[in-house]
Simulated scan of single mutants.
Amino acid sequence: MAGYELLSEQNLRLDGRKADELRRIQCKLGVFGQADGSAYLEQGNTKVLAAVYGPHEIYRHGAGGASRPTLTATSNEQAVINCQYSAAVFSSGERKRRPRGDRKSQEMSMHLRQTFQAAIKTELYPRSQIDIYVEILQADGGNYCACVNAATLALIDAGIPMKDYVCACTASLMNDRPVVDINNLESTTGGPELTVAVMAKSGEIVLLEMSQRFHVDHLEKVMDLAMEGCQNIYHILDKEVRAHVSKRGSLLGWEAT
């Protein structure tokens, strides 16, 4: 399919969205009782489950599989952030023998760690570790962004102090027109793709990645649309957090009486 067919003469995309329209986002906090915090998020057809454990003592696996605590000079002063990204074998049409540990998963895990290392107030938890696990249940583009948005909700559910909400969004070009929140079809057949993660209130960028080079004439407007997408996602996540907190508070009040 040619790239120009992804945008109609009425400037509508194949899924019926306008150029500046996000995919439908649905999310829920506290979906996994065994974790300290958890969240489930759907961004279009991309579905993610995130779980957070900690803060807890730092451990590493030694010889014979035994675990023992290990501390470094850095971890003495602030928490260590451990992130693990994985995709279920049924998450996409591509069948993988190893859903974890491949190069792509390791790269995504590193990006997530860099993102949340900048957002979490790690100085409040010296000599400790916070584990963030994200699992792609269904992949349809914007996997990293969906993982960031789900992990942010899971960290809030766990009560981990953060400097700000971290929200992520993609943007691209179709017919020299910027479009936001790219799905898998648009990603594979469209133009260059920009991924950005920001702290929503301050606007500080914590991760920026481009699949290809953008012409300087297009970069600014694509960047602006991605940032606007992050702000719109922030309002959706914040609304869900407030509803979750209100519901939990009502339940606690009812139990107290």
Results as ranks from 00 to 15, higher is better:
63 A>Q: 14
55 P>E: 01
30 G>V: 06
159 G>Q: 10
243 A>M: 08
197 A>N: 01
227 M>H: 06
42 E>C: 10
82 N>V: 11
37 G>R: 03
132 I>D: 02
235 H>Q: 13
36 D>L: 12
23 R>P: 01
92 S>H: 04
86 S>N: 13
82 N>Y: 03
235 H>G: 00
198 V>T: 14
72 T>Q: 14
201 K>R: 15
76 N>Q: 14
218 H>P: 01
238 D>H: 13
255 E>S: 13
111 H>E: 11
128 S>L: 06
122 T>C: 14
238 D>A: 10
24 R>L: 11
37 G>L: 05
19 A>G: 02
141 G>D: 05
143 N>V: 05
219 L>T: 03
30 G>E: 13
55 P>Y: 10
135 E>L: 10
217 D>R: 10
238 D>M: 08
55 P>V: 12
35 A>K: 05
149 N>M: 04
18 K>C: 12
62 G>W: 01
254 W>L: 14
42 E>P: 03
18 K>N: 11
171 A>Q: 06
139 A>K: 05
3 G>V: 12
108 M>W: 04
127 R>P: 04
141 G>Q: 05
138 Q>V: 04
199 M>G: 02
175 N>E: 05
72 T>H: 14
116 F>S: 02
119 A>H: 04
222 V>R: 01
7 L>P: 01
147 C>T: 05
215 H>K: 12
20 D>E: 13
220 E>V: 07
185 L>R: 05
246 S>F: 06
255 E>I: 14
52 V>S: 00
205 I>S: 03
50 A>Y: 09
156 I>V: 15
63 A>D: 12
221 K>A: 10
24 R>V: 13
200 A>K: 02
89 V>Q: 03
129 Q>L: 13
166 V>E: 04
175 N>Q: 13
103 R>M: 11
61 H>D: 10
43 Q>L: 11
17 R>Y: 08
152 T>W: 01
178 P>S: 08
179 V>S: 06
169 C>K: 02
256 A>Y: 06
4 Y>V: 08
185 L>V: 15
71 L>V: 15
53 Y>E: 02
35 A>S: 15
135 E>D: 15
207 L>Y: 02
8 S>A: 03
149 N>G: 07
120 I>S: 01
209 E>I: 00
104 K>E: 05
15 D>C: 08
10 Q>I: 01
139 A>G: 12
80 V>E: 15
183 N>Q: 05
18 K>E: 11
126 P>H: 06
65 G>V: 00
203 G>I: 03
44 G>P: 07
24 R>F: 10
238 D>E: 15
200 A>P: 08
18 K>R: 14
120 I>A: 07
68 R>D: 02
225 L>H: 08
144 Y>D: 03
15 D>F: 02
155 L>S: 09
83 C>G: 06
52 V>D: 01
22 L>N: 08
64 G>F: 07
37 G>C: 12
25 I>M: 09
157 D>V: 05
